[in-house]
Design a protein around this nucleic acid. Structure first.
Length: 488
RNA sequence: GAGAAUAUAGCUCAGUCGGUAGAGCAUCUGCCUUUUAAGCAGAGGGUCGAAGGUUCGAGUCCUUCUAUUCUCACCA
């Protein structure tokens, strides 16, 4: 690396600015290749990073990588001039250069750029771990790729330079979000922004990150969800609102969980959870088709089809199907002994609804590979959902499971302020008993409901998991640019 | 939170029974005007994750620590 620092000085002394201000780019690498005709010499101006170099005496080849891909450049001393050629001879893999010239095809058939003018645009002082590649029977073989996961996550910029499939994943992530945004706004719903710093956190069951506002000398929380704020906006008269939201949960980290993650939440007035299921089917199908060109995806070793309709199953029927147990009408101690028969260890503090959920999570969820709506959860675990119109003790709620993992959560939203208060106060009692994840009573939210919220369907989709599903990545760290790691 | 594994050159990795550190690529010097894992000839590059210990001697054995990876638990 010292050598490159010396080289930077040497270049400056010989009158070459290693960091000029701009360069006029007219074309991208892939566009040159696509537009190429053997009869024509199209003038081009491209810029990018040197990824391979083959220096020969008075002529050289190198590959340059820009934001779209790579292209080979051919450089002859008697065409670019002595000065530029000797500058080139000092350059390294990783340096960023600009080339003007014309496209041509080499003896071996590769479409390339024949350089007429060449300049250094940015000197790279740190060696880049570029892997060599070779085509063997049409297959690309990569030698000694930059693969150390820790380094890849800590220095994502290097990962992105060197591993093109990483860049592709993040381009798809952006396409997924863009597609969804267009889908929602196309229906006439409003994209909004609500507070990340919240005096009372709510809308989910999780432990928060805590921070402090100096001027007000008060404790604030990073939001664990934005649900309660979006519902306030439905009270305020919007028919449909959505927000792509970073949420923060102070919990463990694994390949499905990052302390900060992205959710889109959507609330639509006058609709219920049945309507929302159809919307989710349409959304997932069209997003996959729009981004991947196909409705099938390979996720955690399974082929998954996102073609509607998705299977629908109540949580009670699901447990009946997969465990041969009918949990309906059973009281807490009957459920507890049923769970024990299945070999499930349970916390003695949890109630009937939670036991049903534990059985489901342990024995059913991992088996639901193709997208499946699980519906009608016990009321106890869903304090913000509306009581089922015909099943006492259950709420109108669904989760979408795919690949054995939860992707979405949705309900017909509870809009009776009296029942909502009872539910939240019950949560507060659980909290006093030591349940750190139980919800807190939010008086302002209850006040908003007292003014009247129309019937409403709400939805939350985990964007990171959805990107994993659609891009086939197996760790959340591979769909978040800068996943959380302990400091070096 | 528990268990297992890993940590050696810029990258990917070897390193046998405990005896002064190895390869390929990358880098440097020279030659080379259609190469593509360019080639040929030569060269440099290491606090072996950190700190202790055992030993005449530790990359190698022991202890502790740190980080990462995987699995499990937790995360409705």
């Amino acid at each position: 690396m010292q050598r490159r620092y010396d080289e930077r000085l040497h270049l400056m002394e010989s009158g070459v600015n290693p960091y000029p201000c701009q360069f006029d780019v007219t074309t991208f690498s892939t566009d040159i290749i696509e537009a190429f005709r053997d009869e024509e010499q199209t003038p081009v101006s491209v810029a990018g990073r040197i990824m391979t170099i083959r220096k020969m005496g008075k002529a050289s080849f190198f590959h340059m990588q820009d934001s779209k891909g790579r292209i080979q450049i051919y450089l002859k001393k008697d065409e670019v001039g002595d000065a530029a050629y000797s500058t080139f001879k000092l350059l390294d893999i990783g340096d960023i250069v600009g080339v003007e010239g014309y496209s041509f095809r080499t003896k071996t058939g590769e479409i390339s750029v024949h350089a007429l003018h060449f300049e250094l645009l940015s000197k790279s002082l740190r060696p880049i771990p570029v892997a060599k590649e070779k085509e063997v029977e049409g297959q690309k073989v990569v030698y000694d790729a930059f693969s150390d996961k820790e380094l890849r996550y800590r220095q994502r910029y290097v990962d992105l330079i060197v591993n093109p499939e990483v860049r592709d994943t993040f381009i798809k992530r952006s396409a997924i979000v863009t597609f969804m945004r267009g889908f929602f706004t196309g229906k006439g719903w409003l994209e909004v922004e609500t507070p990340i710093l919240q005096p009372i956190y709510g809308g989910a069951a999780a432990r928060p990150f805590t921070t402090h506002h100096n001027a007000l000398d008060m404790q604030l929380y990073l939001r664990i969800a934005n649900e309660l704020y979006l519902k306030r906006l439905i009270v305020g008269g919007f028919d449909g609102v959505f927000e792509f939201a970073k949420d923060f949960r102070n919990e463990g980290i694994d390949r499905f969980h990052n302390p900060e993650f992205t959710q889109v939440e959507l609330y639509v007035a006058y609709k219920d959870y049945n309507w929302m299921m159809e919307l989710v089917e349409e959304l997932l199908y069209r997003t996959a088709l729009g981004v991947n060109g196909t409705h099938t995806t390979s996720f955690l070793g399974n082929e998954i089809s996102l073609e509607p309709p998705f299977r629908r199953l109540t949580i009670v029927d699901a447990i009946k199907d997969y465990c041969n147990i009918d949990v309906s009408g059973k009281n807490e101690s009957e459920l507890r002994s049923a769970a024990k028969d299945l070999g499930l260890e349970l916390d003695p503090k949890i109630g009937a609804g939670k036991i049903i959920d534990e059985i489901f999570g342990e024995f059913v969820e991992p088996k639901l590979i193709q997208p499946t709506f699980i519906t009608d959860y016990p009321t106890e675990m869903s304090p913000l959902a509306k009581e089922h119109r015909s099943k006492p003790g259950f709420v109108e709620r669904f989760e979408l499971i795919a690949g054995g993992k939860e992707l979405c959560n949705s309900f017909s939203e509870l809009n009776d302020p009296v029942i909502q208060r009872e539910r939240l106060e019950a949560q507060a009692k659980l909290r006093l008993r030591g349940d750190e994840e139980a919800m807190v009573v939010d008086e302002d939210f209850l006040r908003a409901l007292e003014y009247g919220m129309p019937p409403c369907a709400g939805l939350g989709i985990g964007i990171d998991r959805m990107v994993m599903l659609i891009t086939g990545q197996e760790s959340i760290r591979d769909v978040i640019f800068f996943p959380h790691l302990k400091p070096e």
